[in-house]
Design a protein around this nucleic acid. Structure first.
Ligand SMILES: [Mn+2]
Ligand SMILES: [Mn+2]
Ligand SMILES: [Zn+2]
Ligand SMILES: [Zn+2]
Lengths: 142, 142
DNA sequence: CCAATTTTGATTTTGATTTTCAATTTCAAT
DNA sequence: ATTGAAATTGAAAATCAAAATCAAAATTGG
């Protein structure tokens, strides 16, 4: 989990190889809309690179997470999604169970209270997950 | 999602049948330690009922959730766990990524701030998920 | 260029959960 | 207690995202 940087830096640092596939996947992913699944990213990339294998997408997404450039999300529908970390600060999510809309929010007070809870339990927090599931503005009116 | 009650009540209300399997599964589950997977519950029940099918465990856990008697949890290891709701008030979890320990906590201030966040986004919350992942007291010292 | 090492993509496998389906059970009405 | 329609069961097969396999291809330092 490195700080901000490039996948290329991470690969070199780890003695791994910089391949065309990895560069293409990283670029498309980092420029993308947020919260993509491996499958969605695969389809996106296939437009320009029909020879790209889905396995490589899975493998490179894992590298991006390790490099601290992507974060992995699971919103309860059995599909793992990824979003670029790129500069953007930490945030949590509201998820519409009707239309699938994902709304991001940030609340510093909640973050602090979480730290407090952890301390009270002599627990060292590495990461956390806060998701509110329900109806978005559009879907709440039946 | 009914209020507290029995599975039996829920089944009758829905016009479903009260079977020996459902009664056995509900009883064993509701008396159990918390955070059981379907597989774990299956093994528990098999001690006394070797003929019980795993499918029936899955099906009945789903009914228990619908009846509001169980809540479904996913702690990121790919295994769905269930815990009895029975009287116990709402709580969230600290999860040790080293030993798998699950610590429960409750924080009213966080709950209120969540409501606030939802209101600010015109979002109607049905349920939420707050999990802190890291090292428990035992595991934090290497 | 060389050769050791890594990576790729096609394919197969995995593993939790769901579905299917014929046989059995439930249960309200006789 | 008997009946019969409808629901449920357990075993087996299907599903599906993700991981593993592996021979061929690509990368990289010398
Ligand atoms: Mn996000
Ligand atoms: Mn719990
Ligand atoms: Zn919506
Ligand atoms: Zn631990």
């Amino acid at each position: 989990m490195g700080k901000a940087g490039t996948l290329r830096d991470y690969l070199r640092h780890r003695g791994l190889k910089v391949t065309h596939q990895r560069e293409e996947i990283a670029q498309t992913f980092l420029d993308s809309t947020r919260h993509l699944s491996a499958e969605e990213l695969y389809r996106l990339i296939q437009k320009g690179h029909p020879e790209m294998g889905l396995s490589t997408i899975y493998r490179t997404l894992k590298l991006l997470v390790e490099a601290g450039l992507a974060s992995q999300r699971e919103f309860g529908d059995g599909i793992t999604r990824y979003e670029p970390v790129a500069g953007g600060r930490h945030h949590d999510h509201l998820i519409c169970v009707n239309c699938g809309a994902i709304i991001e929010f940030q609340n510093q007070k909640i973050e602090e209270l979480q730290k407090e809870v952890a301390e009270n339990n002599n627990f060292t927090v590495l990461q956390h997950k806060l998701e509110l599931y329900g109806y978005c503005e559009k879907c709440r009116r039946h």
